[in-house]
Design a binder for these strands. Structure first.
Lengths: 164, 164
DNA sequence: TATTCACTGGGCAACCTGTTCACCGGTACG
DNA sequence: CGTACCGGTGAACAGGTTGCCCAGTGAATA
C-alpha cells in the first residue's frame, strides 16, 4: 500500500486539470501512454482513486448554510439513527466518533431559518437523545487531499518494495 | 440560482458513471448533444459543478485514521492559525464555527499512535489555546451530494423563472 | 410584431481512446 | 548462471468522441 512519485504526479496533475486525457498526461509527465494508463487502472483498483464524480457545491445549489451537529444516541439505537439520517438529503455526511454513542453530522440548509427545519427533522428522530449544533462561518481550508498525496508519494521513496 | 430536472439528471448520471461522455449522456437523457454540452458549461460557470478532480481515499494512501479536532483560538490569532494549519498536509479541512473563536479541523493519520504526532503538530502552534479531539470510528454516510441535487432539482419545478 | 433564447439535428475535421503487439532491462528465483 | 516475470516503451490500428459550426423551430418577452 502506498504510492510512488509517478502516482503522486498523476493524481496532482489530474486534480489540477481534470479534463486532461491520458495521452496529454503522458506527454506532460514524460512517460509512455501505456504507463499512465496502467498506473491509473492500478490506482483505481487499489481504491486510492475512488472515482471522478462531479464536485457539487451545495451553496450554488441553494444551500449556503453548513452546520455540524453532535448527536447523542440512545443505547442500541445507533443502527436506526444511521438508517434514518441516511434518508435526509440535507445530511451530507455522518460519522460515529469516540465518546459514548456520539455521532457527528454534517448538515446544509437554505438559510439560517431553514436550518431550524433541518435540525428539527434530524433530532426529531426517536433514538436521538440530545444534539448540539455549530454553524459553519468560514471555510479557510476546503476539503483537500493533494498535500497528503504529495507527502505520501514523497515518503514512499526508498520504502517502495519494488512494486511486486 | 438553482437547477432544473435536466440539470439534476445530468449531475446524477455523471456521478453514477463519471467516465461517460457528452454524447452518451445525450443519448441516455433523450436530448441533443448540444443541450447537454450547454448545460454542463452553464453548471460549471455557475459554480454548481466545481470540477471533476479525482476522489482520493486517504485510507488507501496509508492514512486510515480520521479525527476531528475542535480548536479554541487566542483572540486575534485566527489568521495565523489558519495560515499555519493550511501548511499541515494531514489537515484535510478547516472550518470556523459559531461559538467564540472556535475552529473545527479534520485530520488524518497513519495510525492511532501517529495521530498523537499530528495533534501535537496542530495544537503545538502558538495561537491555539485548547483542543479536544474525537476519533472517527465509522462513516455510515460518506460525504455525498446526490440526494441534495435530486431534491434541489425537484424543488425547482414551477419555481424556475423560465431560465432567461 | 420583432426579438431573444434554448433546443434540435445535421455535418465536419481533428483528436483521443482502448487495445494489441514486440521489445527491453531489472529483479527474483531455481 | 539462466530463466521467468514484471513494468515500461514505442508503435500501430479502428472506432468513437470532441469541439465547433450552421440553420431551423417554438415559446416567452419586449
Amino acid at each position: 500500500m502506498g504510492i510512488d512519485r509517478l502516482d503522486g504526479r498523476i493524481i496532482v496533475l489530474l486534480a489540477r486539470e481534470p479534463r486532461i486525457g491520458v495521452l496529454e498526461m503522458s506527454r506532460r509527465l514524460g512517460v509512455a501512454r501505456g504507463t499512465v494508463q496502467a498506473r491509473l487502472d492500478r490506482l483505481q483498483s487499489n481504491g486510492v482513486i475512488r472515482g471522478f464524480g462531479p464536485q457539487v457545491d451545495p451553496a450554488a445549489l441553494g444551500y449556503p448554510v453548513t452546520a455540524f451537529a453532535t448527536l447523542q444516541i440512545r443505547q442500541g439505537q445507533g443502527a436506526d439513527v444511521r438508517a434514518y439520517l441516511a434518508t435526509v438529503p440535507e445530511v451530507l455526511e455522518l460519522l460515529t466518533t469516540t465518546g459514548g454513542g456520539d455521532m457527528l453530522c454534517r448538515l446544509v440548509a437554505r438559510s439560517n431559518a431553514d436550518l431550524q427545519r433541518v435540525i428539527d427533522r434530524v433530532v426529531g428522530f426517536d433514538g436521538i437523545v440530545r444534539a448540539s449544533t455549530a454553524i459553519v462561518m468560514e471555510n479557510p481550508v476546503p476539503l483537500r487531499v493533494i498535500p497528503l498525496v504529495e507527502q505520501a508519494s514523497a515518503d514512499s521513496e526508498g520504502t517502495e518494495p519494488t512494486r511486486g
